[in-house]
Protein backbone atom coordinates (compact mmCIF):
# COMPACT_ATOMS: atom_id res chain seq x y z
CA UNK A 1 0.00 0.00 0.00
CA UNK A 2 2.78 2.38 0.94
CA UNK A 3 4.38 1.75 -2.43
CA UNK A 4 1.24 2.66 -4.28
CA UNK A 5 0.76 5.80 -2.26
CA UNK A 6 4.39 6.80 -2.72
CA UNK A 7 4.43 6.27 -6.46
CA UNK A 8 0.92 7.46 -7.34
CA UNK A 9 0.23 9.98 -4.57
CA UNK A 10 -0.54 12.95 -6.75
CA UNK A 11 -2.91 11.03 -9.05
CA UNK A 12 -4.73 9.62 -6.06
CA UNK A 13 -5.09 13.06 -4.54
CA UNK A 14 -6.44 14.50 -7.76
CA UNK A 15 -8.89 11.58 -7.99
CA UNK A 16 -9.97 12.23 -4.43
CA UNK A 17 -10.43 15.89 -5.31
CA UNK A 18 -12.65 15.04 -8.29
CA UNK A 19 -14.71 12.67 -6.17
CA UNK A 20 -15.24 15.29 -3.47
CA UNK A 21 -15.99 18.00 -6.01
CA UNK A 22 -18.51 15.84 -7.86
CA UNK A 23 -20.16 14.80 -4.58
CA UNK A 24 -20.49 18.36 -3.31
CA UNK A 25 -21.97 19.62 -6.58
CA UNK A 26 -24.33 16.65 -6.88
CA UNK A 27 -25.34 17.05 -3.25
CA UNK A 28 -26.18 20.71 -3.67
CA UNK A 29 -28.31 20.26 -6.77
CA UNK A 30 -29.94 17.00 -5.76
CA UNK A 31 -31.05 18.63 -2.50
CA UNK A 32 -32.72 21.44 -4.42
CA UNK A 33 -34.26 19.22 -7.08
CA UNK A 34 -35.23 16.50 -4.58
CA UNK A 35 -36.89 18.95 -2.19
CA UNK A 36 -38.76 20.52 -5.05
CA UNK A 37 -40.22 17.20 -6.18
CA UNK A 38 -40.96 16.27 -2.57
CA UNK A 39 -43.03 19.43 -2.21
CA UNK A 40 -44.77 18.69 -5.53
CA UNK A 41 -45.79 15.36 -4.07
CA UNK A 42 -47.39 16.79 -0.95
CA UNK A 43 -49.12 19.72 -2.64
CA UNK A 44 -52.90 19.53 -2.95
CA UNK A 45 -52.53 19.93 -6.74
CA UNK A 46 -53.16 16.60 -8.51
CA UNK A 47 -51.09 17.52 -11.56
CA UNK A 48 -47.96 18.45 -9.63
CA UNK A 49 -48.41 15.46 -7.38
CA UNK A 50 -48.48 13.16 -10.39
CA UNK A 51 -45.43 14.81 -11.95
CA UNK A 52 -43.53 14.35 -8.70
CA UNK A 53 -44.56 10.72 -8.37
CA UNK A 54 -43.59 9.85 -11.92
CA UNK A 55 -40.21 11.52 -11.62
CA UNK A 56 -39.37 9.69 -8.41
CA UNK A 57 -40.63 6.31 -9.56
CA UNK A 58 -38.88 6.42 -12.92
CA UNK A 59 -35.54 7.76 -11.78
CA UNK A 60 -35.04 5.68 -8.69
CA UNK A 61 -35.94 2.45 -10.44
CA UNK A 62 -33.29 2.73 -13.13
CA UNK A 63 -29.72 1.71 -12.26
CA UNK A 64 -27.40 4.63 -11.61
CA UNK A 65 -25.05 3.47 -14.34
CA UNK A 66 -27.82 3.57 -16.92
CA UNK A 67 -28.89 7.06 -15.87
CA UNK A 68 -25.29 8.22 -16.08
CA UNK A 69 -24.63 6.61 -19.45
CA UNK A 70 -27.75 8.27 -20.75
CA UNK A 71 -26.34 11.70 -19.96
CA UNK A 72 -22.89 10.74 -21.17
CA UNK A 73 -24.18 9.72 -24.56
CA UNK A 74 -27.34 11.72 -25.16
CA UNK A 75 -26.25 15.19 -24.12
CA UNK A 76 -23.08 15.31 -26.26
CA UNK A 77 -25.07 14.06 -29.22
CA UNK A 78 -28.00 16.44 -29.07
CA UNK A 79 -27.20 19.31 -26.70
CA UNK A 80 -23.63 20.27 -25.97
CA UNK A 81 -20.31 18.58 -25.73
CA UNK A 82 -19.60 17.77 -22.13
CA UNK A 83 -16.90 15.66 -20.58
CA UNK A 84 -17.31 12.56 -18.45
CA UNK A 85 -17.06 14.46 -15.22
CA UNK A 86 -19.98 16.74 -16.05
CA UNK A 87 -22.10 13.93 -17.47
CA UNK A 88 -21.37 11.77 -14.45
CA UNK A 89 -22.20 14.56 -12.03
CA UNK A 90 -25.49 15.23 -13.78
CA UNK A 91 -26.38 11.54 -13.72
CA UNK A 92 -25.51 11.30 -10.06
CA UNK A 93 -27.50 14.44 -9.26
CA UNK A 94 -30.63 13.23 -11.01
CA UNK A 95 -30.38 9.76 -9.51
CA UNK A 96 -29.79 11.02 -5.97
CA UNK A 97 -32.51 13.66 -6.23
CA UNK A 98 -35.15 10.93 -6.55
CA UNK A 99 -34.03 9.37 -3.28
CA UNK A 100 -33.86 12.72 -1.58
CA UNK A 101 -37.37 13.48 -2.84
CA UNK A 102 -38.60 10.25 -1.25
CA UNK A 103 -36.85 11.01 2.02
CA UNK A 104 -38.06 14.58 2.24
CA UNK A 105 -41.61 13.63 1.25
CA UNK A 106 -41.73 11.00 3.97
CA UNK A 107 -40.40 13.58 6.42
CA UNK A 108 -43.06 16.12 5.52
CA UNK A 109 -45.81 13.53 5.69
CA UNK A 110 -44.66 12.27 9.06
CA UNK A 111 -45.48 15.67 10.56
CA UNK A 112 -48.98 15.20 11.90
CA UNK A 113 -51.76 16.65 9.77
CA UNK A 114 -53.02 18.38 12.89
CA UNK A 115 -50.06 20.76 12.72
CA UNK A 116 -51.10 21.99 9.29
CA UNK A 117 -54.75 22.19 10.31
CA UNK A 118 -53.92 24.18 13.41
CA UNK A 119 -51.78 26.61 11.45
CA UNK A 120 -54.45 27.06 8.77
CA UNK A 121 -57.15 27.51 11.42
CA UNK A 122 -54.92 30.15 12.95
CA UNK A 123 -55.20 32.16 9.72
CA UNK A 124 -51.91 31.20 8.09
CA UNK A 125 -51.73 30.48 4.38
CA UNK A 126 -50.64 27.07 3.13
CA UNK A 127 -47.12 28.37 2.49
CA UNK A 128 -46.84 30.10 5.85
CA UNK A 129 -47.91 26.90 7.56
CA UNK A 130 -45.33 24.97 5.54
CA UNK A 131 -42.56 27.44 6.23
CA UNK A 132 -43.05 28.06 9.93
CA UNK A 133 -44.54 24.80 11.16
CA UNK A 134 -44.36 21.80 8.86
CA UNK A 135 -40.98 22.09 7.12
CA UNK A 136 -38.92 22.87 10.24
CA UNK A 137 -40.35 19.77 11.88
CA UNK A 138 -39.87 17.69 8.75
CA UNK A 139 -36.27 18.87 8.50
CA UNK A 140 -35.44 17.51 11.93
CA UNK A 141 -36.95 14.15 11.09
CA UNK A 142 -35.14 14.01 7.78
CA UNK A 143 -31.58 14.75 8.92
CA UNK A 144 -30.54 11.16 9.70
CA UNK A 145 -31.92 9.57 6.51
CA UNK A 146 -30.52 12.46 4.46
CA UNK A 147 -27.14 11.80 6.02
CA UNK A 148 -27.35 8.27 4.70
CA UNK A 149 -28.20 9.61 1.27
CA UNK A 150 -25.09 11.80 1.33
CA UNK A 151 -22.90 8.88 2.21
CA UNK A 152 -24.46 6.81 -0.56
CA UNK A 153 -23.89 9.71 -2.89
CA UNK A 154 -20.16 9.75 -2.18
CA UNK A 155 -19.93 6.02 -2.77
CA UNK A 156 -22.11 6.19 -5.88
CA UNK A 157 -19.85 8.85 -7.35
CA UNK A 158 -17.57 5.96 -8.30
CA UNK A 159 -19.85 5.68 -11.31
CA UNK A 160 -17.73 8.45 -12.81
CA UNK A 161 -15.04 5.86 -13.45
CA UNK A 162 -17.24 4.43 -16.21
CA UNK A 163 -17.53 7.70 -18.07
CA UNK A 164 -13.91 8.82 -17.74
CA UNK A 165 -14.63 11.20 -14.90
CA UNK A 166 -11.09 11.00 -13.48
CA UNK A 167 -12.45 10.39 -9.99
CA UNK A 168 -10.93 8.25 -7.28
CA UNK A 169 -12.29 5.01 -8.69
CA UNK A 170 -11.07 5.87 -12.18
CA UNK A 171 -7.59 6.59 -10.85
CA UNK A 172 -7.72 3.36 -8.86
CA UNK A 173 -8.57 1.32 -11.98
CA UNK A 174 -5.79 3.04 -13.81
CA UNK A 175 -3.18 2.34 -11.13
CA UNK A 176 -4.31 -1.25 -10.77
CA UNK A 177 -3.90 -1.97 -14.44
CA UNK A 178 -0.54 -0.25 -14.84
CA UNK A 179 1.13 -1.32 -11.58
CA UNK A 180 -0.30 -4.89 -11.62
CA UNK A 181 -0.63 -4.55 -7.83
CA UNK A 182 -4.39 -4.87 -7.99
CA UNK A 183 -5.08 -5.71 -4.37
CA UNK A 184 -3.11 -2.85 -2.90
CA UNK A 185 -4.43 -0.38 -5.45
CA UNK A 186 -8.03 -1.05 -4.50
CA UNK A 187 -7.15 -1.19 -0.81
CA UNK A 188 -5.78 2.33 -1.04
CA UNK A 189 -8.86 3.49 -2.93
CA UNK A 190 -11.14 1.89 -0.34
CA UNK A 191 -9.33 3.64 2.50
CA UNK A 192 -9.57 6.94 0.69
CA UNK A 193 -13.35 6.56 0.34
CA UNK A 194 -13.49 5.81 4.04
CA UNK A 195 -11.61 9.02 4.75
CA UNK A 196 -14.49 10.93 3.19
CA UNK A 197 -17.41 8.87 4.43
CA UNK A 198 -16.44 8.06 8.01
CA UNK A 199 -16.32 11.69 9.20
CA UNK A 200 -19.65 12.26 7.44
CA UNK A 201 -21.08 9.27 9.21
CA UNK A 202 -19.89 10.48 12.60
CA UNK A 203 -21.02 14.02 11.96
CA UNK A 204 -24.51 12.76 11.11
CA UNK A 205 -24.64 10.78 14.30
CA UNK A 206 -23.62 13.86 16.25
CA UNK A 207 -26.27 16.00 14.53
CA UNK A 208 -28.88 13.37 15.24
CA UNK A 209 -28.05 13.33 18.93
CA UNK A 210 -28.05 17.09 19.13
CA UNK A 211 -31.42 17.51 17.44
CA UNK A 212 -32.92 14.78 19.58
CA UNK A 213 -31.89 16.68 22.64
CA UNK A 214 -33.11 19.99 21.19
CA UNK A 215 -36.49 18.56 20.30
CA UNK A 216 -37.26 17.50 23.88
Amino acid sequence: MINIIASHGSELLSGLGQTVLCSVIALFFSLIIGSMFAIFEVLPSKVLHTIGRIYVEVVRNIPLLVVTMFFYIVIPQYVASINGFVAGTIGLTIYTSAFIAETVRAGIQSVSGGQMEAARSNGMTYWQAMRYIVLPQAFKIVIPPLGNQFINLVKNSSVLAFVAGFDLMYVGNDIASTSFDTINSYLVVGVMYLIITMPLSYYMRYLEKRTNRGAA
Binding site: G114, Q115, A118, A119, N122, Y132, I133, P136
Partner: peptide, 14 residues
Protein backbone atom coordinates in the same frame (compact mmCIF):
# COMPACT_ATOMS: atom_id res chain seq x y z
CA UNK B 1 -62.86 32.26 13.38
CA UNK B 2 -60.51 30.33 15.65
CA UNK B 3 -60.50 26.63 16.31
CA UNK B 4 -59.54 24.47 19.28
CA UNK B 5 -58.95 20.77 18.64
CA UNK B 6 -59.43 17.63 20.68
CA UNK B 7 -55.72 16.86 20.43
CA UNK B 8 -54.55 20.47 20.97
CA UNK B 9 -52.20 20.56 17.97
CA UNK B 10 -49.80 23.02 19.52
CA UNK B 11 -46.90 23.79 17.19
CA UNK B 12 -44.33 21.27 18.38
CA UNK B 13 -41.37 23.25 17.12
CA UNK B 14 -42.32 26.46 18.93
Amino acid sequence: VGMVFQHFNLYNNK
